[in-house]
Simulated scan of single mutants.
Amino acid sequence: MNGKQTRVLVVDDEQSIRDFLTMGLEDEGYSVETAKDGLTALTKMHQNPFDIVILDVMMPGMDGYECCRMLKQKYEVVVIMLTAKDQAEDTVKGLKIGADDYLAKPFSFLELLTRMEIRLNSRFPQKNTVVRKGPFSVDDARHEIMFENEKLDLTPTEYKLMCLLFDNVNIVVSKETIMNQVWGYDYFSSSNVVEVYIRNLREKLQDTEHRYIKTERGFGYKLDVEG
Results as ranks from 00 to 15, higher is better:
residue 26 E to Q: 13
residue 142 R to G: 08
residue 137 S to C: 06
residue 176 E to L: 05
residue 68 C to I: 14
residue 142 R to Q: 15
residue 144 E to T: 07
residue 225 V to H: 03
residue 150 E to G: 08
residue 200 N to S: 11
residue 130 V to C: 14
residue 210 H to M: 13
residue 29 G to R: 06
residue 35 A to I: 08
residue 194 V to D: 01
residue 29 G to I: 05
residue 20 F to K: 08
residue 54 I to H: 06
residue 203 E to V: 04
residue 118 I to N: 11
residue 95 L to R: 12
residue 168 N to E: 09
residue 180 N to I: 06
residue 61 G to W: 03
residue 118 I to D: 05
residue 214 K to I: 13
residue 94 G to N: 07
residue 179 M to R: 07
residue 123 R to H: 12
residue 189 S to I: 11
residue 214 K to S: 04
residue 63 D to R: 08
residue 103 L to N: 11
residue 78 V to K: 09
residue 147 F to L: 10
residue 83 T to V: 02
residue 150 E to Y: 15
residue 143 H to A: 11
residue 168 N to L: 03
residue 121 N to V: 04
residue 38 G to Q: 01
residue 48 N to H: 13
residue 65 Y to D: 02
residue 192 N to D: 12
residue 3 G to L: 02
residue 185 Y to C: 01
residue 117 E to C: 09
residue 175 K to F: 11
residue 150 E to P: 00
residue 39 L to G: 02
residue 16 S to T: 13
residue 64 G to D: 07
residue 8 V to F: 09
residue 160 K to A: 03
residue 223 L to P: 00
residue 191 S to C: 07
residue 11 V to D: 01
residue 145 I to G: 00
residue 219 F to R: 10
residue 189 S to Y: 12
residue 85 K to S: 14
residue 143 H to W: 08
residue 79 V to M: 05
residue 138 V to Y: 06
residue 151 K to V: 12
residue 125 P to A: 08
residue 44 K to Y: 04
residue 219 F to I: 00
residue 39 L to F: 07
